[in-house]
Every structure is written in structure tokens, then in C-alpha cells.
Design a protein around this nucleic acid. Sequence first.
DNA 1: ATCTATTTGTTGTTTTAAACAACAAGTATC
DNA 2: GATACTTGTTGTTTAAAACAACAAATAGAT
Lengths: 400, 400
Amino acid sequence: MSADKPLPAHKGQSGESVRQHNLSTVLRLVHLQGTILRSKITATTGLNRSTVSDLVAELSELGILVEKETAAPTGVGRPSLAVSAADNIVAFSVNPEIDATTVAAVALSGRVVSKERRLMRSHPTAQDSIAVSAEMIDSMRKQLEPGTRIVGVGVSVPGQVRSSDGVIRFAPQLGWVEQAFAASLSQSTGLPVYLANDASLGCVAESRFGAAKDINDAVFLFAGSGGIGGGVISNGRNITGAAGYAGELGHIRISSSKQLDYSGFSGTLEALVRRNDLLDIFRLYVATDEELDAEIRSTESTKARKLLEQQVSSLADGISTLVNIFNPEVVVLGGFLTSLFDFAPDQLIAEMKQGALAAASERVVIRKGALGSNLLVLGAAELPFEALLEAPSSFRLTDA
Amino acid sequence: MSADKPLPAHKGQSGESVRQHNLSTVLRLVHLQGTILRSKITATTGLNRSTVSDLVAELSELGILVEKETAAPTGVGRPSLAVSAADNIVAFSVNPEIDATTVAAVALSGRVVSKERRLMRSHPTAQDSIAVSAEMIDSMRKQLEPGTRIVGVGVSVPGQVRSSDGVIRFAPQLGWVEQAFAASLSQSTGLPVYLANDASLGCVAESRFGAAKDINDAVFLFAGSGGIGGGVISNGRNITGAAGYAGELGHIRISSSKQLDYSGFSGTLEALVRRNDLLDIFRLYVATDEELDAEIRSTESTKARKLLEQQVSSLADGISTLVNIFNPEVVVLGGFLTSLFDFAPDQLIAEMKQGALAAASERVVIRKGALGSNLLVLGAAELPFEALLEAPSSFRLTDA
DNA sequence: ATCTATTTGTTGTTTTAAACAACAAGTATC
DNA sequence: GATACTTGTTGTTTAAAACAACAAATAGAT
């Protein structure tokens, strides 16, 4: 009945855990803000000058942070030192898609060190994908600067991932079911591997570095050829749910329509806002988001415009529901949803407000994603980085 | 661009804040678990025996906790002391409804010290309600045991409340708009007053003391005569949103039906699962939840059973959407939704699973609320208690 | 060019609170 | 009644943040 397991919520704090927390706080600040003055760290953390000095020294010792003298002094008084995240600590990010696999190396400083997209035959098995990923990581690893250290691998998966053990439960586009992706890729590379849903990672990336930076409550909707994915930041934290499947915002039911989405549910947001329907009406077979966007911007076809208006309406319905549920400050759109937004921003906003409570919707801002093609690259890299940020002094880095 | 305000997320921890945190942790543990052995506190917090001894001593000194020798020893070894929350520290909870106002005094120990429900003429103004509440609190205050100290007042509001200043933005049933309830009631009583949405507070109560105790991810749906309200616990925390309006789960759109809910939105969960529709079909004008439940259990009418099945379907649709969004462990139902559940549990569960992702729904349990008529009494009291739990050593208690 | 005010880094000391260690107290089992 | 076991108590140690004093580096004033 009562909790025999020591819930983390009821954990006390000892002296050492305070040190861990403070190291973590400083490192996270630098990772998120980029290069930052030490005096600024002192101000934002509220810690004493000498304490910050000591913390930064320890992190520098570990090779995680770097201190440099500021090139141009900023004002009166002794110039403060600039603190940056190490440029030679990298995470690999992997994004398997239906027709290609993207692998990148991202430095803790945020720099994308290298990035490669390899086309694959359609419908690769998970084993194929793991083999290709491992090989790409291996070759990329050899080209890293000497002395570079590796945090691990983050994989963005277009499907549902069990967070506890990194098993892909179901990836509809790829046709994968119950694949122990993390364990297998970890075996092949000798590196720790972390998995999460792609849209959730996009959400994390936009909230840390993009359109929702410094926002505590945000909702994300990303649409691609595989449907609509989503993510939520509430009170500054990504909502994951009990097992990691939360945030499937494409599958919220908003209508009685019998139209099906890619997972076979009817009347959902994903069923009514379909990229393929737009491609069809423009008589396109495949198209990049840019090409589709150009068509949407320029079309004069009444039929096309009507479909677009319907999709905008459905999107507004979906956003209304999410606003009522989450009361976010910002709603961030990605993929071709940005084109829908641009097509009829006033309609979208008006219909969204009409379907949502005034109090919850009055301050909501709808915004386009800011990270473009680096969205998932940065998002996936945050998974291993998060592990490092959580325990900077005890995390085991791997030599390149 | 970058954060000039020191975000709490980037706050460091000093020695003193550790003490605060640990005092808070111990006190919260006792408040949530009820009477608990000191050895158990040591085990769950992970703190040293002597540290726990010291922390409990400080809280006892403050009169917040009480240590007693255990009546019946539990096993081998020196018997541990039983730690309880003080029974003479109380919070008032207030619940204004359309036809009555309920005021109660709740002890930190969880005991409901007193409770009174006063009938009022229909459609009271906010001023009426504040005056009546203040008067009820005053008279109840006089009857408290000597030496009792007061934490504050928590108000559960059937409407949207801005959390920053306790202004009621809109309470559709009561017809209130923009009422500075907290400020006004605080003026009248001389006590700190906290406000929140009623369903959110019910959610907090069930998650701390009721059907979702020790559950980190739970969704709550409560239905009454005023519609359907909701609340969410994600990662152990109640979701409030940017301004406090999150959790309006009754207003999620699940259908294209033109049926309107109490806030004028069409096709929402609240529009399709209406208590009044059930009352109508049973030819009841007013009825308690118990009376309605009896009708639902015993009805043989085909028309009634069809309506009930429709409502169960709609409820299942709503829960599916919420399961896809939140991946909860438990969904808790309250009000007449429990009767719907009892009417057709298999249908509800089957249809819910049909509309939700397998991964997210496979482990979900649908459960009835456990707190009955004390739901809002306990929930509202948690608001002032929370302030005390947050800062036990510096919180200013008021003498009765 | 020099002086002053200002800000920040550095170093050595103090303080706080948790951990630790040793012992006493109380219970159950043999 | 002896022994093992668990918990409370007390005094000591330790870790880390705060503090204080001073040095360093800048901008602006004289």
C-alpha cells in the first residue's frame, strides 16, 4: 500500500548531492546558453563567486568546460572570464527514416561537427538500420579530432519507444515491432545508446535552443510524411508519461470523420491533416517540404485552397484542444504545418481561439520551429548529453 | 534574448537551502503517509539516522510534528518512534457552489476537524459568497481547540482561476467573471487565501491520498452538474500550465457533433457526456449522484440504455485521446462518471483501448475516485498546506 | 598620466549541516 | 539470561558553500 520503494520525490539531500546538483546546474547553464561570462553564472545561479569559481574549475579539470579571457571587455571592472562547453566532447545522433539514415556528431558546445545522410533501399529492417548506423558512427568516429571524447548515441525514432530499455514498440512507417534497438546498437558500437520518439526530441530541441527557448510551457506539433508527432514542455520539463509514450498528439481525436490516420485511428488530427492529401491535389508524387510550401503559396486552384482551408480548420481544432489541456505560452509548428500556418495565419488563430477557453488562449502565440534540418540532430544528441549533465563528475566518457 | 531573470531551474543550492529541502521532505513525507516510524523516514529519505533525528526535532520544536513512543513494538531491536503531523494545525477549505457553500477545517494530519454546508439562494454573487465564506470561517475559527494555529484558506472554484493572483477569470455555472476572490476573502479573514480550479484540486487530493496514491502519471476526470473537469499528474506533479488554466479536460473536442457544452463549445467531451441528459431520460429534475447511480444500475429502458452506451462511448473516446497524450498509469473517474464506468466497464475499456495506441494503453487502469465527499475538502486544504510544506521553518502560522 | 570607483578573480578562513562512529536502549529469539 | 539486532543519542569529523580580505583589470574623472 504505502511506498516501500524510496520514491525519488522523497529523497533527502546530502552534502555530496548538493555538489552534484551545483556542478550539474553550472554545466547545464553553459550548455544551454552557449559561451557565458563567469559573472553571469554567479548571478543566475545565486551561488557565491568563489563557489562558482571552484565549480567551474572542477568542470574544467574534467575537460568538460573551458575558460578563456574575454576578447573585448564588457564594461567597468575586472573583465570576467568566458566559460564555454568543450568542443571536443561529442554525442552521435542517429535518425532512421524509411528511405535514409542520418548520422551526425554534435559537440557539447552545440556545434554540429559532422553530418551524413545515407540513402537506403526502402523498408530497411531494424537490423539493417542498426548495421548501417553502426558503420556510419564508426567511420565518423575515426575522423574526429584526436583527444575527442564521446558521450554516447541518441536515436530519434519515428514511433513509440519504451524509455526504460530503449525498445522500439511500434514504428508504423518503418514497419518495425518490438525491436531492441538500443541494446543492439550499443553492442555494435560499444557506446551507451539512448532512444526516444522523434517528435519528443524535436520538442526538446526547440525548447532548449529554438523557438521555445526559456519558455516553461509549450506544445509542439511536427508533421512529416509519416504523420503528425508532438511533444509537450510543461513547467519546463518534457512530458514523457509512465513508460515514455506520452506526446502522441497526432492521434488526438477531434472529429467524427471516418478518415483514418497512419495508425488506423479515425477522426484524429493526423487523419485530417495529411501531407499526402496535399501532394495528391498538387499532383506531386514526392516533394520536399520546400517544394510543397512553394505550391501552397502559389496555388490558385479553388479545390486546393478548399482542402488547405479544411486542414487549417482541423489543425485549429487540434490546437484548441491542446490549449485547453495545457495552457501553453507557445505552440510551435514544424514540417508542412508551417506552410499551413503561413497559408492562413488569421484563420488558424481565429478558429483556435474560438475553440479554446478565452483564459487559456488569450496569450498563446503560434510560432514556427527555428531549427530547420538540425532539429532532430540536436534533439537526439540531447539524450546522451542529458546523462552527462545529470552527473558531470561521475559520467564515464569514451575515447574516440 | 538570453535569460536575464534568474530562472528557478538554474538556481544553485546553498547549505541553508539543503536544510530547507530536507525539512520539507520529511514534513511532506509525514503529511502524505500519515503517522510513520522515524526509522522509515530514515529509509525512504536516504538521510542519516542522526540527521533525521535532528530534522524531526526541529519540526517538533516548531510544533509541526509530534513524536510518540510506539504502542506496540514492530519487531526485533529498539522500537522506533512514531512521527505524526500536528493535529492542531489547520487549513480552511472553501467550496462555493451554485446553491450552497461548503467550508471545512482540515488538520495537517489529514483529519477533517469540522465541516459545514450552508444552502444559499441561487446564483449568489462573488461578494455574497465571500461574505458567507468569511462568516463561516470566523465562526468555525472560534470553535477550534485553544492553541490551534491556522495555515490559511484554500478555495476550490468551479471555473478558471489565474494562479498568480487568485483572480477567478470565469466561472460559468456561477456566472462570475473577473472576480478578485482571493484578495477579497483574505481581506475579510486576515488569512492568506489560495485559489485553484476544483477539478485540479480533486486531482491533487486523489493523487496524494486517494485512488492514485504513489502514482506518478495519472489523469483525472470529474463530472458534476456543472460539467466535466479534469486534472493531470505528470511525473508526480500537477500540470498547471503557464497561468494556471491547464487541465480543462472537459473541453477537449472529440466529435463533429453540434451538441454544445456548458461553455458553448461543440463536440467536446462535456457536450456529449451530460448529466442533465441522463436526468431528463429518467424524468428527474434534481438528483444526487447516489440517486442517479441507482437509476442507472436498475434501468431496463432501452432508450436510457442506449443513451448510456453513447455516453460510455464518448467517454472512451475522450480517455483514448488523453491516454495518447499522457500515457498515464491510472485514469481516475469521479462524480457520475463512476456510474457510467460501472454500467459498462468492459465496453469502456474495450473502446478506450481501440482508440488509443497499444503501447500507451496496455497498462492503463481505469479506477474510481476514493475520497467521496471529502474530495474537494482535502484538495483545497492542500493549497495552504503546500505553502507550509514548501518552507516549514519560515512559514508564518496564524493563531486561531 | 594618474587617481578613483567598480567589478571580478583569488586565496585563506569560517560556518553549516550532513555523515560518521561509538555507545546506550530496548526488543525478540534461543 | 545471553545474544543478536535495530534504533535512538551524543560527540566528532568532513565536505562544501559562504564569507572576508585582497589583488587584478577596466572605465572614467582629474
